[in-house]
Design a binder for these strands. Sequence first.
DNA 1: CAGTGGTCTAGACCACACC
DNA 2: GTGTGGTCTAGACCACTGT
Lengths: 247, 247
Amino acid sequence: MQGVIDTFVMDRSSPIPLYFQVAQHLESAIADGTLAAGTLLLNEVDMADALALSRPTMRRALQSLVDKGLLVRRRGVGTRVVQSKMRRSLELTSLFEDLSKIGQMPTTLVLSSETVQASPDVAAKMRLAPDSDVVELVRLRSAGGKPIAKMTNFVPVDMVRLTSDDLAQRGLYDLMRSQGVTLHSADQTIGAAKASAADAKLLDEPRGAALLTMERVAYDDRGRVVEYGRHLYAASRYSFEISLLTG
Amino acid sequence: MQGVIDTFVMDRSSPIPLYFQVAQHLESAIADGTLAAGTLLLNEVDMADALALSRPTMRRALQSLVDKGLLVRRRGVGTRVVQSKMRRSLELTSLFEDLSKIGQMPTTLVLSSETVQASPDVAAKMRLAPDSDVVELVRLRSAGGKPIAKMTNFVPVDMVRLTSDDLAQRGLYDLMRSQGVTLHSADQTIGAAKASAADAKLLDEPRGAALLTMERVAYDDRGRVVEYGRHLYAASRYSFEISLLTG
DNA sequence: CAGTGGTCTAGACCACACC
DNA sequence: GTGTGGTCTAGACCACTGT
């Protein structure tokens, strides 16, 4: 059965909400196979009782795992652990964080970093007045000794203080977060294009190679544009992985 | 103030949950500008009172809009309407549905549709035994008289009954849904590649053009592979748009 | 301090699936 | 029927924000 649940230890004095504690316990039990794929869980009332929680609190924990795609619930039937192994999602992480997870030890070379007047199209994308000052940042991201991406970013001058040293190590988003910028959402457009001669050389790809392109506009919770980026990826060594759910 | 809220009419005899009705009303008020971007909403207790709802029900409605990125809540401060215009997400929709929304009147040409033995790599992706029978389906999607995508799909033979007539009109996912297949999630990989001579001709692109590639494995709620697809997009006329939130 | 959202409880009734 | 998850209520207390 699910004696597993009785092993969960709840800490009612912790600042971590109870529903979150339960969700964490369940998630790790699923991750390590204690709750195998396909397992039918106890009904939510009994689980709540077993943990001395109210039913709404138990439901909230279960719902959070449904939202993550780890559980499937059906009225009149029960709650089951989902089969597949999904996990991964193209979230609002920087490429740096992406690669770090894969253990590729990425490196960053800052090709240029300067304050310039925004060109008309950049100003439009960032919803800034024409000729507003922005920091233009061009970086080359590499992994395993091979170039992966040329990243061009524009940031409003007053948004964040940037130093090349920081950028070589921490990634742009991480840096902005630590300076009090609260990220809210981003719009991304993914396409493909042939490499220019210069870009092909930079990315160590053949002349005219197909490149993956990604354009991103990121907003803070007040709706201000926090960053605008145009990135080129060596398609032979990089692709985007997206996992998504279907209510 | 937010006299708007008093105009919401709740139907307690409807099968549509109350929290969902409230969320719909709020969402349309935001969409049509009645609740302008940046507006500070009433606190949740007063809103609940105004609609004669309990606070948990009101909270559930608000939370669903926070999850959609339309509202931002901060403890001690209040609830605000978000600024940007986001909306759009690369969900588990077919290209057909994508284009329909944009009003491009897409058409579909079924190039081939036959039952074949799965090749080793296809069988592996679909987690089927080698040489299992699958339906292989190749379609050309066009919009505005120009080809947009060559779509190659593989479906387990027993999963769904396919007819060319249906496929020309309804899209693969729509068809599977209507035959009782419950979609759960999908893993997508987006990349780029140079067009082969044949593909370039089919998609009306120059020789060696850069194409967007998308590979997708879709699962039902039992973890079975429902569909595996390899798609090629004319990058000059199509790109992926993704909107995402950052908790 | 007053006001906000965040968490938690202990019930109730309903809709649906399966026997 | 019986058992499941889905919805809804009416309170309570806490944590954080801003004055």
